[in-house]
Design a protein around this nucleic acid. Structure first.
Lengths: 189, 189
DNA sequence: AATGCTTTTTGCCAAATGACAAATGATTTC
DNA sequence: GAAATCATTTGTCATTTGGCAAAAAGCATT
């Protein structure tokens, strides 16, 4: 829980009472490797915070290829925002790719907190904005780079991820094939 | 001006008095093809709204290649947000790539409006969030696609742009060379 | 219409990446 | 610890894309 409080307080201040109220709504959730946090075709019902483990968000393009949009590792929020906010079906899978431990908030509790705690929605706004900006900054620049550079950029952005997840997921994030990535790694070492 | 009011009102409601106040702070700005709206190394000082013309945002990667991050066409906001909000030097050029007509707000006026008009900051929040989401949705998916598909995706996203700007800018947006793009176009027709 | 300037297309070849299959290595299960 | 399963590496070849330079096309100015 401390991790989550520290995380929040990076984006604004809240008093102890407010923090306690937020804490009281959080429950722990464990996900096994390969389990889904939320799924395409369903409406996202919860907000999570990754205490331990790695999550990925992926979808299938119109050629049926599985594309990993991004990874979420420890001390980050995980929520399928478009679906959660607008109560619409998601088109993405949010999947644990290692065993994970999360804090979760139900949609009901989350909305109540937003209405109850003064300043909380401003903090959430900042958190979401930063997450969106990160998404732009992280994957878009890959478009202009060759496969080797993409891999090196990945290593910089997710330094704690590479040894914990299958190579194929990294390849599908970078937009290259698994065998290309394998060869690239051989050349770098 | 009407265009801008209509744009705003998509994101929330304001009364006539509030709209008038906003309008009173806007000035018109014309940019000739190739002129900059804001530049790398400087601090963004204004928010713009494109009435006519096309703008692009670009930067140079560490190989010195010019990369177009995105285009902004009519009836969209243009602002180097990171720089504008945090008063830090930008690393991107915001450039008119056709002759442009803009509405602009000075930073001072923009901030005053945010403090004065109830609900305006919520609207701005929504506008910015949508713009960020668009950026994620538009360029990131290109990573997973081959050059032809990238070009087709570009045509869908910016249907009014292709015939008005140099091919080289499109190529630098799609992460392919100009000659490849030229060949791809030949094959599609 | 001739001139210069910019943009786009094309040709040629090299390099990078993909597709597919097989081999190797790692991990889990019984 | 043998078998089965899954992940990674490697081989071979085809395809795509890049690099570079020249030609062609388009545009503006005179």
């Amino acid at each position: 829980m401390k991790e989550f409080i520290d995380y929040i307080l990076q984006f604004g201040s809240l008093n102890q009472q407010q923090l306690d109220l937020i804490s009281s709504k959080a429950t722990e959730l464990e996900l096994r490797k390969d389990e889904y946090f939320s799924e395409a075709g369903k409406i996202a019902q919860q907000v999570g915070f990754v205490l331990d483990g790695i999550i990925r968000v992926c979808y299938y393009n119109n050629k049926g290829e599985e594309i990993t949009k991004y990874f979420i590792d420890e001390n980050n929020l995980v929520v399928d925002l478009e679906s959660f906010d607008n109560d619409i079906c998601s088109n993405a899978y949010v999947q644990a790719i290692t065993d994970c431990k999360l804090l979760v908030f139900s949609k009901k509790d989350w909305k109540e907190l937003l209405e109850t705690i003064i300043g909380w929605d401003a903090i959430v706004h900042r958190i979401i904005s930063k997450a969106l900006r990160q998404k732009v900054e992280r994957r878009s620049p890959l478009v202009s780079e060759d496969a080797t550079t993409r891999y090196l950029m990945f290593l910089k952005i997710y330094p704690n991820v590479i040894n914990r997840i299958p190579l194929s997921y990294v390849a599908s994030y970078l937009g290259i094939t698994q065998s290309s990535l394998s060869r690239i790694r051989k050349n770098i070492k």
